[in-house]
């Protein structure tokens, strides 16, 4: 029987659709873990359905403050502050989910955030992500910005954990995804209402996160390096 900690380590994999019968058995009996997985799934689903919205600078500032308040967005950088308990096993999933949370947070209308006093803001990240979504442009831009930050961390020469040979092997898929993202963004710039292109862009972002995961995932590095 697996423990709660182990199941939380598999959260990303479960949401990506991987089969882990031992985790399913645990979830059937552990309401707490079940709730966690359901909530994370809801965040992901909410982000998939995100319409576009450009929040005001003031609202964005409040969202940022609320995320900090909840410990989801740390003082140093969003990348450094994801704790192992929350995002233990899947850096890419963590990256995608973190982006999702930030993006979702930025794009939803959460009543508490509209209040006058910042100190009163008690935004719960999951409620934020699942709250009513409003229409406006450029969630795509924010998603891309955050994904670029992940890429920068992975690719930066001086800090990169990526083995040069692995970097070479992943160059082709990374180029393919980047090219596809660029094409899809051009399409969306010309046809902002093209939902098929928007779905494709989200899929491509996930694929890019997968490439970055493979480049930084200890599974590969620990395999024999």
């Amino acid at each position: 029987m697996v423990t709660c900690e182990q199941v939380r380590g598999l959260t990303g994999a479960l949401l990506e659709g991987e089969s882990h019968p031992e985790a399913y058995a645990h979830l059937a009996e552990c309401a707490r873990c079940q709730l966690l997985v359901e909530e994370l799934g809801a965040v992901e689903r909410a982000a998939r359905a995100l319409p576009v919205y450009q929040p005001s600078a003031r609202l964005w500032g409040r969202v940022e403050a609320a995320a900090r308040h909840e410990g989801l967005w740390g003082q140093r950088s969003w990348w450094q502050d994801f704790t192992p308990a929350f995002f233990p096993a899947r850096p890419a999933f963590a990256a995608v989910l973190s982006v999702t949370l930030l993006v979702a947070g930025a794009l939803v209308r959460y009543p508490a955030l509209e209040g006058p006093a910042l100190a009163d803001t008690q935004a719960n990240a999951f409620e934020v992500a699942q709250a009513e979504l409003v229409q406006a442009p450029s969630y795509n831009d924010r998603y891309q910005i955050h994904l670029q930050q992940v890429e920068y961390r992975v690719m930066a020469e001086e800090t990169s954990p990526v083995d040069p040979e692995l970097r070479e092997m992943t160059a082709r898929p990374l180029d393919a995804v980047d090219r596809a993202i660029e094409q899809t963004q051009q399409r969306l710039a010309a046809y902002p209402d093209d939902t098929l292109a928007r779905d494709e862009l989200l899929r491509l972002y996930r694929q890019k996160a997968t490439v970055l995961q493979a480049m930084s995932d200890p599974v590969w590095l620990d395999a024999g390096r």
């Binding site: 659709g17 991987e18 089969s19 019968p21 692995l166 092997m169 992943t170 082709r172 898929p173 997968t210 490439v211 493979a214 599974v219 590969w220």
Partner: peptide
Amino acid sequence: RDVTVETVAASVYLRNVNGHTSVKTLN
């Protein structure tokens, strides 16, 4: 039964595999 495969650039051939199979590869 369940088969999980992940590769960076290795080619994967599956034959008569009948459970839940998941294959992820970059290249």
